[in-house]
């Protein structure tokens, strides 16, 4: 690895971590979700400060250059993370769908209930009037 590449890696990992911690400070991210980014930026930092680890792994896998190994490694980690995100989004989508459907059905049920209550109320009212024996009830029925 060249010195510049290492420097880029170091700056990048510090940047990631700094940005992430700032978002936590502003209470914009859930701690559970930030754990991945924390571990990821620590990993980048370790690899940039101790490139021997990456060199050793590169030789072990018989790859051409250390930077190739690091690219492959990062791509793989991000792929796994992306898969996990897709999973999460699917679940969120499903929950949102369920939530909206339940809300709609419950609203419908409540309206129906309110309507039937209203109907029985007007019925008893008119019979009250009728039982009054008086003009009011008849008048109302005629109308």
């Amino acid at each position: 690895m060249t010195v510049i590449f290492r420097m880029v890696l170091i700056v990048m990992s510090f940047g990631t971590m700094g940005y992430m911690l700032r978002k936590i400070h502003q209470a914009k991210m859930q701690i559970e979700e930030s754990l991945f980014w924390f571990l990821f930026s620590v990993l980048l930092m370790v690899l940039s400060i101790f490139p021997q680890i990456a060199t050793w792994a590169t030789r072990l896998l018989g790859m051409m250059s250390t930077s190739n190994f690091i690219f492959l490694f990062i791509i793989f980690v991000l792929l796994v993370r992306m898969f996990y995100m897709t999973l999460k989004i699917s679940q969120l989508d499903d929950r949102l769908k369920n939530f909206a459907q339940k809300m709609a059905i419950e609203e419908n049920l409540r309206e129906e209930q309110a309507k039937s209550e209203k109907n029985t109320q007007t019925c008893t009212n008119s019979t009250d009037f009728a039982n009054d024996g008086g003009e009011n009830g008849k008048h109302r029925l005629e109308q």
């Binding site: 936590i24 502003q26 209470a27 701690i31 930030s34 754990l35 924390f38």
Partner: peptide
């Protein structure tokens, strides 16, 4: 453990 030792330090 990670949350208590590290991340909590950066909260308001």
């Amino acid at each position: 453990t990670i949350s208590i030792l590290i991340i909590q330090n950066f909260r308001k």
